[in-house]
Amino acid sequence: MGGCPEEINAETIISADDRLFLFATIREAWDYRDLFRAFLTRDLKVRYRQSFLGAAWVVLQPLLTGGLLAAALNALGVLGDLGGRGRLLFLLAGTVPWTSFASGVNAATSSVEGNAQLFRKIYFPRLLLPLAYVTGTALDFIIAVIALALIAVALSMPVTGMVAIAPALMAIQFATAAGLGLAFAALNVQYRDVKHAVPFLLQLGFLVTVLVPFERWPATIRALLQASPMTAVTRTFRGALAGTPISLMSLLVPAATAIVIFLVGCVFFEWRQRQIADFL
């Protein structure tokens, strides 16, 4: 939608039997990049407006969850073989990425239904809205990781490795959350069951990836989890905080899974998006 003269006479054809052209989608999304920015700014500005603690909640949520869990699990003696600091950081290293991942998936899932009025009345590249919501939670992630790093420094745990690997982990997590969120958002337009099922699935994921240490799972499940992007993110964070050297090779398969999830989510969403206005 640039104002360049050569675009003025460009012809657009919309036909009943339009097929999916991913290249055209990407190009159009790029043309609307200012809209992506506007959605993102709206999300960031609105989320914590009129709340006393504001953006501090981004840090407080995972820290409180981690702290509570540490206290509870400590009392139950589940994490017996880790030291005091270790227990807290073990849980924080899991809750910090998971909180932003889960809120990303949730926000994207409900994004289309929540903006039904917009989808019914205005055309814009539909993909941009869920992606903007996930990006918003990815920014939360950065803030939360900085807070985690500060805590690690305060507890004199190694922090350099974690900070160095964080961007890669964020990319993996973003791709996963965006792919799942897009697919769920498109499904939720037609089947509202999805928005009720997603929080449950996320709790299940939390249990599997964060709560239960990877080593406790039986070998068959471990083999499956090794390909899971969020398990990789959690384990890498934990390993970095424990000072074990990070193996980039172990991130290859999860990264590939994340990319596949992202692409499948995008394609599925694009395939369904033309019908969105008819179902909302």
Partner: peptide
């Protein structure tokens, strides 16, 4: 906002 079921527009 919504696609045609048949036909096309330019």
């Amino acid at each position: 906002v919504t696609p045609p079921t048949r036909g096309r527009l330019r």
